[in-house]
Simulated scan of single mutants.
Amino acid sequence: MGPVLLLGSGTDYMVRANIWLPPTGMDPRQEQVLHSYELAHDHPFSFLTVGYFGPGYETTIWEYNPDTLTGQPGEQVELELLEHTDLPPGQPRHPHPAPPTGTLGLPQPANQPP
């Protein structure tokens, strides 16, 4: 992920813009580590996201049962595939908060402005 702009916040919300930059041409393995692509993570909060410009990103959404976990580092987690999707311009997504988890794919270059 690239820059994050905080646009506003209150006691129960935050509005921010995440900017997913296109690949830079550096070694794809370095870029993957730098931006945490293909690294599973959860969102323990509710959020709404909308594609604004460019082809968006690809993501794979998984779900797990937190009641089966002990929280130990390296613990095996049984995942259930929910969907593989992308976020093109104008497409809103409102995934439910954790336990769904996801991995982000490498963004594609933008072709034209909105």
Rank of each mutant, 00 (worst) to 15 (best):
I19P: 05
H41R: 02
G102N: 10
G10T: 01
P88S: 01
P99N: 06
H35F: 13
A17P: 01
P109V: 04
P99D: 04
Q30N: 12
L39H: 11
Q30T: 11
T85G: 05
F47L: 14
M26I: 08
E31F: 00
D42R: 06
E80T: 15
G54A: 02
S9C: 14
L79R: 02
P95N: 13
G71A: 02
E58T: 10
V33G: 04
P113W: 00
L48N: 08
T101V: 09
V77G: 04
A17K: 15
A110M: 04
T101Y: 00
D12L: 03
P109N: 06
P73K: 08
G54Q: 00
P55M: 02
P66I: 13
T68G: 04
A40S: 11
L39S: 09
M14D: 12
Q108K: 15
L6R: 12
V33I: 13
L81I: 08
S46Y: 05
P99E: 03
P114W: 04
E63P: 01
Y52R: 05
F45H: 14
V4A: 02
G2L: 02
I61Q: 08
W62F: 13
H41F: 04
L21T: 03
G25T: 06
P23I: 04
L6S: 15
E78H: 09
N18P: 07
P97K: 14
G74A: 05
P113L: 00
G2P: 01
P88L: 01
T70I: 07
G74T: 05
V50W: 04
P113T: 01
A110I: 03
G25L: 06
L79S: 00
V4M: 02
Y64R: 05
T59C: 10
P95L: 08
D27H: 06
V77H: 04
G71K: 00
L34E: 14
L106A: 15
V4Y: 00
L48V: 15
E83C: 13
V33N: 07
H41Q: 10
L69S: 04
P44K: 11
G2N: 04
Q76W: 09
G90W: 01
Y52P: 00
D86I: 07
L79F: 03
S46A: 15
H84Q: 11
P22E: 02
E83R: 11
M26T: 10
P113N: 01
M1G: 13
T11I: 03
W20Y: 12
T49K: 05
I61F: 10
D27T: 02
T60V: 15
L34F: 12
F47W: 08
F45M: 10
G102F: 08
H35L: 06
G105L: 03
P95F: 05
T70H: 10
A98F: 07
E31K: 01
P55H: 03
Q91H: 15
H84R: 14
T11V: 07
G74W: 06
D67N: 12
Y37D: 00
R29C: 05
Y52G: 02
P95R: 08
D42C: 14
G102A: 12
Y64I: 03
P99I: 02
G10Q: 02
P28S: 06
E80K: 13
Q112C: 11
P92S: 06
H84N: 13
A40L: 10
L81E: 09
L6W: 03
E58S: 10
V77E: 04
L34K: 12
P107T: 06
G74C: 05
T70K: 13
